[in-house]
Design a protein around this nucleic acid. Structure first.
Length: 381
DNA sequence: TTGCCAATAT
DNA sequence: CATATTGGCA
C-alpha cells in the first residue's frame, strides 16, 4: 500500500487522485472532510468503523495512499488499534480533542501527523506530503539509486504546484481572514496559509474566526492550548459555541507509549453525543491532577463549509480553569480578590469580568462541592 | 466604572 | 438541580 518512488515519478499531476482512506465515526464530519478532499481531487473512501477500514486495507493492499483517522474519547483504543495495524499506510490522526497525551500516543504509535479538527482545506491539502515521505523512506532504505531522480521530480512537481496554485487559488481559501481585523491578540503567522509548503501549518494554536459579525466585545470563540500547570502564562477559556459536548479520556494503557506519555486511565466516560444539524465540533478537556496534562480547546468550524456558528458564550469552568481561578485568588489574597484583578492574574483570554465575578459569587456562596474544593485547594487559613 | 447579588436561563 | 449569565443596584 505504500506508494513507491517509481509510482510517484510516474504520477502525473501528483497530489491529484491520491486515495485517502477516511475513518470517522461521525458521519457528518466525515462527509465534510470528504467533500473538502474531493474538492482538491483526492479520492476519498469513507469508513465509519475501523473493522471495515482494516479489512479494506488488508483485502486490497495498495488501495490507499494515506489514511485520515478520527480519534475521539469513545473510540480511542480502536483508533489506536487501527493505527498500529495499518503501519504501512501513512496515517494521519485527527481529533477535535486537543489532548497532548493523545497526540503523543498517536505519534508514538506511528501516526505521521496529528491534526486537530476542524480540518481546514490547508491541512487537508497537505496530506500528500506523507505519501512522499513514505515513498522516500521506503525507497531510501533499500537503495538510494532511484531516490534522487524522484526527489527531483517531486521537487519540480512542487514548484509546478506552487505556480498553479497561486493562479487557481483565487476563490479558494484565503482572502477572508481579512474580515477579522479587530479583537485582541492574534499571533501566528497569518501570511503563509496558502498552499502546501513543505511545512505543515497544523499547529496553530490560537486561531479565532469570527465570520459573521456576531462576535461582539469579549465574547470570544477561541482556541488555545494550555500548557501544564504553570502560572503566569496565558490561557484561554473556551466559550462554548455550540451544543454538543463530550468528555474525553484517552484511556488505553498500552505498550511503549507509556514511556513517553504519562497518562492515567481515569476514564471519565460520560459521552453525551448529540448530533445537531449544525456541523460544529467541539472540544473537551482532559485533566490530570498529578501529572497535569491539561489542555482545552474549542474548535469551531470556520467560514468555509460551515454556516451559522451559534455562539453561546458560555464559559466552561473546567477544573483547570477553576484551579487557575483559585490560584489567582490565592495569589491576590482575599482582600484583593476582586473580579478584575483575578481576571488579570488569570490571564485567560476571552474571559470576562462578569464570568469571573459570577464564578466568584458561586464559589464563595452556595455551591457545596465547589466550596469544599476551593477550601481544600487553598493553603491559607 | 467596578463589585456584588438576585433573578433568570441553560 | 446545578451552574453560568443577565441585569440591577450600591
Amino acid at each position: 500500500m505504500v506508494c513507491t518512488t517509481n509510482d510517484l515519478s510516474a504520477w502525473k499531476d501528483f497530489p491529484k487522485g491520491l486515495r485517502v482512506l477516511l475513518l470517522d465515526e461521525d458521519s457528518m464530519s466525515a462527509a465534510e472532510i470528504k467533500s473538502k478532499l474531493e474538492a482538491m481531487d483526492y479520492i476519498v473512501y469513507t469508513f465509519c468503523n475501523e473493522t471495515e477500514a482494516l479489512s479494506a486495507i488488508s483485502n486490497e493492499p495498495g488501495s490507499f495512499h494515506v489514511a485520515i483517522v478520527e480519534v475521539s474519547m469513545s473510540n480511542s483504543s480502536r483508533s489506536f488499534k487501527f493505527l498500529e495495524t495499518s503501519k504501512d499506510l501513512p496515517t494521519i490522526m485527527t481529533s477535535s480533542i486537543d489532548c497532548l497525551n493523545t497526540m503523543m500516543k498517536c505519534i508514538a504509535l506511528g501516526a505521521v501527523e496529528f491534526l486537530r479538527k476542524p480540518l481546514s482545506e490547508d491541512k487537508l491539502r497537505n496530506i500528500w506530503q506523507h505519501v512522499v515521505h513514505k515513498a522516500f523512506n521506503a525507497g531510501g532504505s533499500v537503495q538510494s539509486k532511484s531516490l534522487k531522480p524522484v526527489k527531483d521530480s517531486v521537487v519540480s512537481m512542487l514548484e509546478l504546484k506552487d505556480g498553479l496554485e497561486e493562479n487557481e487559488n483565487k476563490n479558494m481559501e484565503k482572502t477572508e481572514n481579512v474580515s477579522q481585523a479587530q479583537e485582541s491578540n492574534e499571533q501566528q503567522s497569518p501570511a503563509s496559509d496558502k498552499y502546501p509548503a513543505p511545512s505543515t501549518p497544523q499547529l496553530k494554536q490560537g486561531e479565532r474566526l469570527l465570520d459573521d459579525g456576531d462576535c461582539q466585545d469579549h465574547i470570544n470563540c477561541l482556541i488555545e492550548k494550555e500548557s501544564v500547570e504553570q502560572e503566569g502564562d496565558s490561557k484561554s477559556v473556551e466559550t462554548t459555541c455550540a451544543m454538543s459536548e463530550e468528555t474525553l479520556q484517552a484511556g488505553d494503557p498500552q505498550s511503549f507509549t507509556e514511556t513517553v506519555i504519562k497518562e492515567e486511565d481515569d476514564s471519565t466516560d460520560g459521552v453525551k453525543s448529540e448530533n445537531n444539524m449544525c456541523p460544529n465540533s467541539q472540544n473537551k478537556d482532559t485533566l490530570n491532577h498529578s501529572n497535569g496534562c491539561a489542555e482545552k480547546a474549542s474548535s469551531l468550524h470556520n467560514s468555509h463549509g460551515t454556516r451559522a456558528n451559534r455562539k453561546k458564550m458560555k464559559v466552561d469552568w473546567t477544573p483547570e480553569l477553576h484551579r487557575k481561578f483559585v490560584q489567582a485568588v490565592e495569589k491576590l489574597g482575599v482582600d484583593q480578590a476582586i473580579p478584575s484583578r483575578i481576571l488579570e492574574v488569570m490571564k485567560v483570554e476571552g474571559l470576562t469580568r462578569h464570568n469571573v465575578a459570577s464564578h466568584l459569587q458561586v464559589r464563595s456562596g452556595l455551591t457545596l462541592t465547589k466550596f469544599v474544593s476551593f477550601c481544600s485547594d487553598r493553603s491559607h487559613f
